[in-house]
């Protein structure tokens, strides 16, 4: 074994950390003089360290990642992380239909989408997006606190989007600009999965007092926001049947609320996950029927998936519509793959 075979990795580490002693520096330099591989490594480490951090897209990427999480967190397991990570790489590998189907709009639950006033708003206009849209950045769910365009929130005083400060390069601070509930949140209740407290999507005035869950069936207490919270809590706890019941009740009792629109979107994907694409399709189409733009891209993609699952001839048109309206969509790759695979019209 020659000297270059005995690479002094610890010395390279200490050199990188700037903690070499004079004697160690001498030893390292003697090795580097005869070992191009270590010289290359040392210089390449410095080269990579000089790369700047990729900050501008962080909010966008985090939002998309949150939207792509499965409905319930996996239980704690005792196995080491490496195997699981490797499996995750294999499972989630981009373009994975399985991961794609699992994606719920968790970002909406986290307050990354700020719904509009729920119960007092007039009926929504429908038929939005029937015509071609200008290309938009690939953002399945908006991080902009004003994620709902002004024309989607009648009565809103939100200025036009063009007047909003750009959030693209802002520090990650997705907290909604609108007032949060005055009462403090029960932070201690957020430490267990069963007590996950998603962002309140409803109006403050509708929310029950902190710590008090609305009793469904009692009209005095039940609001769109309270039903939404209950449905979300059930969904994140993995209780899909209960979540489905709550979302359906919400959509039935408060059909014009923003929560109902989100509920249609979440329920649509939930039903797809449950292998009920026909029902899921109905929910997703309800989302598209006047739903906010923040949900539209995602709903279009899942509607296309539902049609695919049903082997419906409209699947091709659905994927094409997604690409037409959102050419930079995160789902664009899947859309193009499906369009190649589907029979020509």
């Amino acid at each position: 074994m020659t000297a270059p075979d005995l690479h002094p990795e610890e010395l390279l580490d200490r050199a990188a950390a700037g903690t070499l002693s004079p004697a160690e520096r001498e030893r390292l330099e003697a090795h580097l003089a005869v070992c191009p591989a270590c010289r290359f490594e040392q210089q390449a480490r410095a080269d990579f360290a000089a790369l700047p951090a990729g900050v501008p897209k962080i909010d966008d990427l985090v939002t998309r990642a949150l939207a792509g999480l499965p409905t319930a967190p996996p239980p704690r397991r005792a196995r080491p992380p490496v195997g699981l990570v490797a499996a995750a790489v294999a499972l989630v590998g981009f373009g994975s239909l399985a991961a794609f189907r699992l994606a719920p709009p968790l970002a909406a639950m986290l307050g990354l989408v700020q719904p509009a006033p729920a119960t007092s708003e007039p009926p929504r206009q429908t038929g939005r997006g029937d015509g071609p849209r200008a290309p938009t950045p690939s953002r399945p769910l908006e991080t902009d606190p004003a994620g709902l365009a002004p024309d989607e929130t009648p009565g809103s005083t939100t200025p036009p989007r063009g007047e909003q400060p750009s959030s693209a390069n802002a520090q990650p601070a997705p907290a909604p600009a609108k007032p949060r509930p005055a009462a403090p949140r029960a932070t201690d209740a957020r430490t267990t999965p069963s007590a996950v407290s998603p962002a309140e999507p409803g109006r403050d005035a509708e929310a029950p007092p902190p710590g008090q869950r609305a009793a469904v069936g009692s009209d005095a207490d039940v609001t769109a926001a309270s039903l939404f919270r209950e449905a979300t809590a059930a969904r994140t706890a993995g209780n899909r049947e209960e979540a489905e019941r709550r979302y359906r009740e919400l959509a039935e009792r408060f059909p014009r609320s923003t929560e109902a629109t989100v509920a249609h979107a979440v329920l649509g994907r939930l039903l797809l996950d449950l292998g009920r694409p026909e029902e899921g399709l109905r929910e997703l189409e309800a989302t598209l029927d006047g739903g906010p733009s923040a949900l539209r891209e995602d709903a279009l993609a899942h509607r296309a998936l539902a049609l695919d699952a049903l082997q419906d001839a409209r699947a091709r048109a659905a994927w094409e519509q997604l690409l037409r309206e959102f050419p930079a969509s995160i789902h664009a790759r899947r859309a193009r793959e499906r369009l190649e695979a589907l029979p020509p019209p």
Binding site: V62, P73, L106, L110, L112, R190, T192, V196
Partner: peptide
């Protein structure tokens, strides 16, 4: 890891 969505974000 325990499902706290706020912490996840």
């Amino acid at each position: 890891a325990h499902g706290d969505t706020d912490a996840t974000a």
